[in-house]
Amino acid sequence: MTESLKLPVGIEDFAEIRQAGFYYVDKTKFIEQLLDGWGKVNLFTRPRRFGKTLNMSMLRYFFEIGADASLFDGLQIAKNKKLCEEYQGKYPVIFLSFKNVEGLNFADAQYRLAELIAGEAERFAFLAQSDKLTENDQSLYCGLTAVREGRYALADEVLVSALQLLSKLLSKHYGQKTIILLDEYDVPLDKAFQNGYYKEMVSLIRGMLGQALKTNEFLQFAVLTGCLRVSKESIFTGLNNFKVLSITDNRFDEQF
Rank of each mutant, 00 (worst) to 15 (best):
S167L: 05
Y198E: 14
L159R: 05
E115H: 09
K6P: 00
S161G: 09
L166E: 03
Y24I: 02
A107K: 15
R48A: 15
L34K: 10
G150E: 05
L165E: 01
A192Y: 12
E64D: 14
T215I: 15
Y152C: 03
Q76K: 13
G39Y: 13
R48V: 13
L224S: 01
I94K: 05
K243R: 14
E233G: 13
L219M: 05
F193T: 10
H173L: 02
A69M: 09
I11G: 06
P47Q: 06
E233A: 12
K214D: 02
V147K: 15
Q33L: 15
E157C: 05
L170G: 03
I94L: 11
L219E: 02
S139C: 05
G210D: 05
L127P: 00
R18D: 01
P92F: 08
F22A: 02
E217C: 04
K81S: 15
G39Q: 14
E135H: 06
G175A: 07
P47F: 03
F62D: 03
M201N: 10
F236K: 01
N241E: 14
E12W: 01
L96G: 03
T134C: 13
C227Y: 11
T225M: 06
E217G: 12
S161V: 08
W38C: 02
T28V: 08
S231C: 05
S97F: 02
P188Y: 01
D73V: 07
R206N: 11
A125F: 14
Q88W: 06
R18F: 01
V187D: 00
A212D: 07
K82L: 09
